[in-house]
Design a protein around this nucleic acid. Structure first.
Lengths: 183, 183, 183, 183
DNA sequence: TATGAATGAGTCTTCATTCAT
DNA sequence: AATGAATGAAGACTCATTCAT
């Protein structure tokens, strides 16, 4: 039976997310294949990690597509994005934490496009008067990733219920900590 | 010339934050000493990491002390904490990711104590009616670290000016993205 | 389409002569078949090498037969042998280096028989007063292979024209470098 | 005690000459050091083999220097060269046999210089009327290597006495097999 | 019959750590 | 105290070989 490439990648992502030093052997075993087979499908450790990166980018891209970032209220779009991105949060956190994986420093171009789309959403919100303008779109983009990662981790550690995650991230990001009159 | 222990720890924190698999050799070189010397000062890789942790915990403890978390308005206390913690954001980010990436290692006790103090601040704000109560103190604690780490990285990457960092983090955390009447 | 066994063996000989560590994969690709097919036709690497040996032995045996080593002048017989062996020089070169590089493996019996026939020719020349006797038949045998191999390589590298090969080898072997009165 | 680089290289050359597939481990053990140390001195297997190649080139260059190729009778110069090169014959044979070691095909430039000097010697002999001109200097160069290799092997196999080697090669190369009036 | 896919075994390579100066 | 050198242990990688289609 042919190896399910995507399944292997998902296992790899899951393991690497938990421990960045997970060995090829462990990944292979988790995926139910031999080390040699793992090497046949991914030219080496780097190639595997790059593939995980590509998968993460692809999944996050899909989340953005599904969330229809350009439709309606920017705040609602952001809420939809968080809901869609939640399953990918773990991988994204890994990829962001391990962002100097490759000496060459050539960052996967896919990230830039994602960053752009995200920043565009924040900018739209600002232009439409929904979002404050004293926080740059660029910073909000980074903050989004930071909160997503923290959320994934909090769930993993049992500090936040999975069902609360969407709400926790979205509300914090949109409304902050302070109790306000509105809402 | 005597080895500057703290400098070594800071280099280590910086490198390990970006790549958890950074080798002893890379750390030694970044610190300007030989591998052997690095080993003379820290009994091993684990000991080095523990030392970085300890440094972070110590510095963050000091930041908390200086910020007088229990005094006055909770929001103001949080602002003070962010201001004090900002210079150590790098090491803190390491602590945060570190505890994420290496599972199995019992969490450093000192770290847990810091978590508690931070959570207590959020709880105080909630009890005093300043902070919303639909976001758990536990989650806010995680979010705090996440945003601090994201901020440190954003500055490092040149996406946020160092001078804006305090404001960026504090405002986002306290008020969220949404433009509001107050403030 | 049926696999051309001899073509495979010739490719294998050519590659193995130049690099004893040539992999099964490279040989298979050079022969235009898959690794698995190569294995179906030859029970394993050793079997393949043995088959190449056998091919070389068979072809060289035939060359010897055709050259009628026992007939007439020994020098003429040697010339005929060189002419007959030239097309198989590549495989022969392999046989020669092969027996050099892998020690421990008992020498193929067929090969020893060829050595004997060749040595017998040289001995005959010496007994008949045509060949000098200060160079042992055993050494001349080795030298014969060495020159044949060098010749095959020189042609391959474009340093000697294929049409000159016979003459180059035969003249050097028979008459040496020095300009002489006779001839 | 510091590792004797040259000694390691000589061990490596000796082992690789006998079996091209000798492992790094075997070489390390033969040199009395650990595999890791071997790797510290030679970046990898390829690097080690290249170093062996360099050593071979250097030794053969030295042999040429010592033999004073440009002095006196060309035939005598050739005799001197054979005598000087004899100890290196084994390594040279290995390097010639394994001449496709590196995929890139970038041949060590040192060879070309050696080839040139050797060819120059043959050409000088031809111009001075000592060597026949119907055998190209280029071919004689190849033949020289072929005979040297064959000789090294013949000694190794016990078919030629080490003390006879010089004579065997020189006489065959200079005078050929045929009994002649002169000499 | 031919082959893409899978794998066990073995080699190469790196890293944290120790040693001798 | 500092370091170049050496190494055991562990992981990455490759190859010949087998399997299932």
């Amino acid at each position: 039976m042919a190896v399910d490439r995507e399944r292997v990648l998902k296992e790899a992502a899951a393991l690497l997310t938990r421990r960045a030093t997970t060995s090829m052997d462990e990944i292979a075993r988790a995926a139910g294949i031999s080390r040699a087979t793992l090497h046949r499908h991914f030219a080496g450790r780097d190639a595997l990690i790059r593939a995980v990166e590509d998968l993460g980018i692809e999944q996050f891209t899909q989340a953005m597509d599904t969330a229809r970032l350009d439709d309606g209220d920017a705040a609602d779009a952001l809420r939809r994005l968080i809901a869609e991105a939640e399953p990918v949060a773990g991988v994204l956190a890994f990829l962001f934490t391990e962002n100097q994986l490759f000496e060459g420093g050539e960052v996967n171009a896919g990230w830039a496009r994602l960053d752009d789309r995200l920043a565009a959403l924040f900018r739209r919100g600002q232009e439409q008067g929904d979002f404050r303008i004293d926080l740059s779109a660029s910073w909000l983009t980074e903050a989004f990733y930071g909160l997503l990662g923290a959320g994934a981790w909090a769930v993993h550690e049992g500090r936040v219920a999975r069902n609360d995650l969407n709400h926790s991230i979205a509300e914090l990001l949109l409304g902050g900590i302070r109790r306000s009159m509105e809402k």
